[in-house]
Every structure is written in C-alpha cells, then in structure tokens.
Nucleic acid binder design. Structure first.
Lengths: 347, 347
DNA sequence: CCGCTCCATCGAATCGATTTGACAGGGTAG
DNA sequence: CTACCCTGTCAAATCGATTCGATGGAGCGG
C-alpha cells in the first residue's frame, strides 16, 4: 500500500519529466504520441487517474466551480418551476464549459461564514432579488465575480432582469379593458420573515425583493390603490390562503392578480372552494408562464417570461466574467398570454 | 493597483510570520489576541478577505465540495418532488459541515470527462439507481468516496436504499384484497433512451434502474404476469400517456399501479379524460408519498417512503466517509398509505 | 560538412496556504 | 540564583500540479 501516485511518480516511471507528463495529460500537441502512450501506461500501472483537480486549480487559479445562491431553502425554492427552469438554463451554458454548479441554499446550505471557504470561480444570485444579502457582501469582499438575476442592483455586478413592471402593467391593463375595477393582488414575499397579510406602505418600503415590489408597483400603475396580500412563500398553499382571505372580505374583487403562476394556482383553488366560477365570477391571472401540467385543461392567463433564457443569459455573463470581460446588463421582455382564467367583469 | 494581497503580504504588514497570520485566521488559541487584532487590521487595510480557499484546499486535501450526481437533466429531475426532497435532506446534513453541494446533471452538466477535473471530496449518486454509469466509473477510478442512493450496488460503496420491493408487494396485495384481478403497472424508465411502451422480458433484463425493476418485480410477486408500460421519464404527461394506452386497450384494467406519485397523477388525468370514475371504475395507486398539493382534495393511495430521511442518511454517510469511517448500508422501510383513489374492484 | 530550423522534452519557478516541531523569553518554583 | 515550564511566534517542509523559456538533437538545405 504505497503512497498515492502523483504526477511526478508517474513521470518517473514513464522516464520523463513531470512537465512532460503534465503536458501529456493535458493533451498538448507538443508531446510525441509515443510519449503520451508511455505516460498513460505508467499511470495505468500506478492506478493514477489524472492530475489532482485541487492542485491544478491552485496553479490555474480556477476551480471550475460556480456557485448558485438560492435564497430560500432548497425544498421551497425548487417547488417553484421558474427557479428550476432558470437553473436548467444556467447549467446548460455552464455545462459546456465543464463547470459545475454549486448550490448555496439560504437555509441548510453552508453558513455564510463557511461560504468564504468554498473555491468558487464566480457566483450567480439566482432566485433572490434580495437586496443587502450577507452572502452577497461576503462574496463581494472576496472579489468573487458575481452575476445577479433580478437583483440586487449593484454597480459592477452584471444584472439579468426581466420587465417585471411593464409586464404587470400590461396584465393589469388587460383586466381593466375587460371591465374589472375591483382588483386585488397576491404577492410573493417582500422579505423572508414568514409574514403574511395585507401589504401596507411600510412593509413595501422595507421589502428586499425587487421582483415582488416591481410587480406590485406595476399593477398599481393601473389600479392606483389596488390592495395586496403578501404570502410567506411562493407556493400553492400560500396562494390559496391569500386568495381565501381576499375572497372572504367584504368587497370581493372581481379579479385577482397573483404574482406568480404558483400563487395563481392557489387562488384558483380558493375560488373553487368557494364555488366561484372562473372566469365567470372571478378572473385570475398569474405571472411567469410556468409549466404546470397539472393545471390542464385550464389555461392560466399570465405574463410569460423567458425563464430558461434568463438562466442562459446568466450563464453567458459568468462565462464573460471568467474571460475577464465586462458583460452588459440584460433585460428580457415579457409577453402577456391570455388564457381561460380571465374574462369580462361580472355585471 | 497592486497585486492581490496574499497571506504573506498581510503577515509582513502586520509584522508577523505567515505561519502566525495563518493561525490567526484559523482562530487558533495559541496566538495572542493582540496579534490576531494586528493581523486582521493589516488584512483590512490590504483588502484581504481571508485565505484563498483553493490554496487551503490543496494543503488540507479537502475542497469542501460534495457532488450530487443527478441522472437526468436538471429540469426533469427537479420536477420530481422526491428528488428535490432528497436533495433537501442531503443539504441539511452537509450544510452543517460547511460543505457545498455541487450539482452534476447527466445532461447539461459537465461532460463526464470534465467531471474528473472538479475538486470533489465525495459524491452522492442521488436520483439514479443507475447501474454501470460512466460517471460512476470515472469517480471510482479517481478514488472519490461515493455514496449510492438506491443503487448502483457496488462493493465498497455505501448504499442508502428503501424497500422498493416490499412496498410494491404490499400495495399490490392491498389491491388484490380489494378484489382486483386485472391490474397493470406504469413504470418509470428502465433506461434513459426515451423509450415508451410495454415492458417485455428483454427490456426488463437490460434495464439499468434498480428501483424501476424492483418495483415491477414486487408487483409481479402478487400479480404474476401483470402487464407494464414504461414511460420515458418520471412526469405527469408521461403518466397520462401511459395511462391512456392502458385504458384504451381491450381488457381494461380495474386498477393501475404507477411507480411514482407523479405518474399516478398522470394516470388520474387519463382516467378523467375517459370519464372513468376513480375509484369506482378504476383504482389508481402511486409510490413515494410525494407532496403534491395540487392533487387535493384527492388523496392518492401510495407507498410512503422517508424521502428527506434518505437524503439525510446519504449526508451522514458522506460525513462518515470523510471522517475515514466505513458507513453501513441503510435500508429504509416504507409504509402503505391508502387514500381515496383505490377501492373495491368493480363488479 | 556546416549551420540553421524545428521538434520534443526538460528545469525551475510558482500558485497560496497549513502545520509541526523548535525556540526565545519571561515567569515561577525550589 | 538556577532550572524549568509555559506561552506566543516562527522557520521550513509540504500539498501536486502548470507553464514558460531554454536546450539538445535530429533533419534539412546549401
């Protein structure tokens, strides 16, 4: 049981210098095929499977690992098809580079302090438009190249964004045209503190999620004092709960805008529970254009965002950063997609 | 714009040796508080955020990164609540260790060859009972400590498993007691080659997913020649398609066992599309005990497996491996949970 | 037969930290 | 006053590869 073989061991056995052995493993054209062969055989005999990635990382100054910071706990974040699709797009681009995606979950992931001990070439703030995040500050201090998806907006950090505001404006306008006047919104969390309920000015001001805020403000551009109910997380049950609250109030809205398709699905359930016909009694709309096969045959009216493309754009930004370039900010347009859940306001 | 500061730079500025500076950052009790202070101040002045993780990794021989090999493409794998829950359990344990989870997706992830270039302390084969996987062989050759969840079963690789077989037997027995005789199964993929349709002996023999095979064999222990239809991936639409195929055949089954809750949801949709009452005309059962809130108020008859606990167990196995121990194999029991989707066979 | 070019290989510096055992120097006990 | 111990600091070895620029030798043309 000898010591584990190293590149030098192998080189010695092959009768070449470590430099040559290294070149051989790297597949450099400058080394003769016969030599490569000899090195590989020596490696085989010694049970050497190739250069140690950590040592190579040190020398190269690159680890081949890119972090994806997920705000929430994995379990909740991945219930969200949008998050998953985004990450899929991200891996698509990074995978080609031979780079791995390291998941950094807000909860259950490495504690912020530990985060600095991980060998990251770059990090993407993925599902969190979170402003003033300790993880963000830590990585900045470490000079880890960063990409922000939907925020935070910080100078020097390339941003990949969508037209949250504009999209919601269009959606709201659509409902207005349909004759709706009593419209309410179910929002995603403004902060991750488990709070639910009506959103007042204070709460809005202290919110840290840009997308949540933007979508709310967009709707209010059309319906000036549209009431909003905040959920504690972006999930169906939360949507149902918030929907139920809105529907049981005195002035029942004729339309509910949910800030995500997942929340909208919950609102639909709340409506069904109350025996309300959609869109006869109540119109419901979402946001994201998520792929929710179980919703069929209902087609949710929603605002479609290019989720996977967002991930790919983030991936490309990472690639650019690693190449020493300064990637431009990107803002993707969104498109209103009317479905079967919105209709004329009841008389 | 000087060179980036290193530990030595900082040490020099603080008027101590690099060794002391290192100890200071490591929080060693052997270094005087005043010295620590001095070092930290010097670091602050130089904009040094702490020791370089890669260099530290090399010296320590640990990178703090654990790989999670996902068989499929991220997008599909994460549609599966079971996979997500498993990973959540895994991060829960690894997070405490300050270790990050690196996602290695079969598709879109780093190509197998690149996989060897990533600095992994260990890897978990997460959602793939896949036998004879190139990634698996590669990592084994590299001597990366491995943990297998539901396979592959290889000597020296700790296994975290559930009683797939026994669970399906119980489920099938339940249906038999309800009087069902014409029972069919919708299976998960046996290989990832996009194939769909009836499972014959050949196909079963060349399958690489242990869980799929075991669940089928379990059902056949009760219903000897129970017909099975394979899906191309574990998703609702796939389940619907397979269900439709089974329901449109000549001898319509009175019960369909789906190998996962997701597939079962699809079968339910296929039944609904045909106007079949569940469980009046058709009983449907799943497997996993997944959390599918949108299925409410229907409660799927299923076999509950401790998904998150499986992830935690895998995490503990990794921890043990990293500590140089040899973790034992673990097999979790499963429990039949009758719901509202199974009932007596129609007369 | 000489000089030049080109090709394959090698030397040596470097990446940035960790860690152990040794060593000053001051304090205490005998 | 001496011997010893403890505390805080340091020197040096090590982790394992990568990467130029340099070098030796073979082949070629003149």
């Amino acid at each position: 049981m000898s010591d584990r073989a190293t590149l030098s061991t192998v080189a010695a056995r092959a009768g070449v210098s470590p430099s040559t052995a290294s070149l051989a493993f790297a597949g450099s054209p400058r080394v003769a095929p016969a030599t490569v062969e000899r090195v590989l055989r020596a490696a085989g005999e010694l049970g050497y499977a190739g250069p140690d990635p950590i040592a190579a990382s040190l020398r190269r100054g690159r680890s081949g690992v890119v972090g994806a910071v997920i705000g929430e706990r994995l379990l909740y974040a991945f219930r969200d098809p949008v998050a998953v699709q985004m990450l899929d797009g991200l891996t698509e681009v990074l995978g080609e580079l031979g780079v791995g995606l390291l998941l950094l979950a807000g909860d259950g992931g490495p504690a912020p302090a530990q985060l600095g001990r991980l060998p990251l070439d770059a990090a993407v703030f993925a599902t969190c438009g979170l402003e003033d995040d300790p993880a963000f500050r830590l990585l900045r201090a470490r000079r880890v190249p960063l990409v922000a998806v939907e925020g935070p907006v910080v100078a020097g950090v390339p941003l990949v964004d969508i037209e949250d505001r504009q999209g919601t404006v269009e959606l709201a306008a659509h409902l207005r045209e349909l004759g709706h006047r009593r419209v309410a919104m179910v929002t995603m969390p403004l902060r991750l503190d488990g709070r639910r309920g009506p959103v007042d000015a204070d709460r809005l001001a202290t919110g840290v999620y840009r997308d949540t805020r933007e979508r709310l403000l967009g709707a209010r551009e059309v319906f000036a004092d549209l009431p909003a109910v905040e959920t504690a997380s972006n999930g169906i049950e939360e949507g149902e709960q918030a929907g139920a609250a809105l529907l049981s109030g005195p002035d029942r809205p004729t339309a509910i805008l949910a800030q995500s398709d997942l929340l909208a699905a919950g609102v639909l359930r709340a409506a069904a529970a109350r025996g309300l016909a959609v869109p006869g009694d109540l119109s419901v709309a979402g946001f994201d254009g998520a792929d929710l096969p179980w919703l069929a045959p209902v087609r949710l009216t929603t605002v479609v965002q290019p989720t996977a493309e967002k991930g790919r754009a983030a991936g490309r930004a990472v690639v650019a950063l690693l190449a020493g370039e300064v990637p431009p900010d990107v803002v993707f347009p969104v498109v209103l997609r009317p479905g079967t859940t919105t209709g004329p306001a009841p008389a």
